[in-house]
Design a protein around this nucleic acid. Structure first.
Lengths: 236, 236
DNA sequence: GAGCACAATATTGTATACAACTGTGGTGAC
DNA sequence: GTCACCACAGTTGTATACAATATTGTGCTC
């Protein structure tokens, strides 16, 4: 099902594919690596694809730009963001600062229902992997972290983590080394187990090591290429 | 000087008061408590004030909404945000999680130039207080935290802290207990001293206690009023 | 043939026009 | 007198038209 069909379906049901829908669709596409970093997002094209006016598209792109998933260059247009190695490092450092404590809180507060949701989520992730839908698996893998943050019942921090996860997806698209996500699978399992058992300290430690692991699976070129236009031309 | 004059001045210099300008102007007004939480921000009014079309105003309001300084209710318009006690607590918890470590990093990296900037900033703050321009003093007081975060050279985390400081301003407007900001003044001084001396541990500890102090100077009603519309009606 | 200037095209930025919705005030029935 | 309903005014949501800017292609000069 194409996104256009989805939009059409929504219209059919009476709900117009408003800004939120476009934001969600583009977010998903970026998360699932269907839109590569650097891709130009022309307003006219998107307006046609989603069957709406440029007004809506513009608002959506500005929203995504605020989330730093998209970069808007004045009079040039919107592009899927391309985090630099420095930015990538900073994003992981932020995650390493925020997520372990959040996992701690989540482990303290998690109810049975929460745990059930997490396990269901992991099951979905496995399913996607089984169908070798790696895009979707990647998306779900990130969303697990978001879910854990939500359990901690800290809306603000959850928001930050959501933001970081989204950008991490771009980093993976650009700098990912390994192919297999097997390690991840195991890490997520034991993490959820710790949360289920309300073992806050364990959950915190597991999250920390999981992030270190993730971080180390990323290859960040030392070449501190700030390259705005120059790199843009060579990089794509 | 009214904001309108400022806009006119900008136009005179050839730069039109584009979206960014409006965002900055409104941000400042909120920071300095000239716009109280709950204030309606009508698109038409703002368009007239800034001498631009609603298109620009809308984009600016959406940007502010993304920063959670403004709340947009569909078909109702934009209002200066009113963080609930729960949100306020979460914002402070986030600050307590992020800022101490950031102060630590800042203390490690701070150069003489950085420190000079911080001291100049504090001087400005004193000046504003001397002129009993409490709005500006409050704004500058928050900005010091942002500056410290910037010194840490962690763009992403700085962004989060900036966001949190901005919302903290709303919290102060709503729930501030004490009148005097004297304690602050002292706290900022010793904090900058620690950073100047590259004493990371001290800076971290000072920041932590400063935040706890700040947090305790806020009175958060226990009434867990989720009250969206209900509280809105009674509260104003 | 290479390099530059200029025109044509396409895309973004802004303003305006129109549609849809909300809230209010008034009128009528009960 | 009170309640329900309807019409109107005002505001927001969306689409479109126009202006400004970047990009591309062409032809001229050297």
């Amino acid at each position: 099902m194409s996104t256009h069909d989805a939009a059409a379906a929504l219209v059919g049901r009476g709900t117009s594919p408003s800004g939120d829908f476009v934001v969600a669709a583009l977010s998903r596409a970026i998360h699932e690596h269907r839109l590569a970093p650097g891709t130009k997002l022309g307003e006219g094209d998107l307006a046609e694809i989603y069957g709406t006016s440029r007004t809506i598209i513009r608002a959506a792109l500005q929203s995504l730009a605020h989330s730093q998933l998209v970069e808007i260059r004045r009079n040039r247009g919107a592009f899927v963001a391309k985090p630099t190695p420095k930015e990538a490092r900073e994003i992981f450092e932020a995650r390493e600062l925020l997520e372990p404590r959040t996992a701690h809180m989540a482990a303290q507060k998690a109810t049975q229902a929460d745990v059930a949701l997490l396990r269901a989520h992991i099951a979905q992730e496995h399913e996607a992997l089984a169908q070798s839908d790696s895009g979707r698996a990647l998306y779900l893998s990130g969303q697990l972290h978001v879910h854990i943050a939500r359990i901690a019942d800290q809306t603000t921090i959850s928001g930050f983590i959501e933001h970081l996860i989204a950008r991490s997806s771009l980093i993976v698209a650009l700098y990912w080394k390994r192919e297999s996500a097997l390690c991840e699978r195991h890490a997520h399992h034991s993490l959820v187990d710790a949360i289920a058992a309300n073992e806050a300290e364990t959950a915190e430690a597991l999250m920390r090591s999981h992030l270190v692991d993730l971080h180390s699976s990323i290859e960040l070129p030392k070449s501190h290429d700030v390259g705005a236009t120059l790199k843009e031309i060579l990089g794509s």
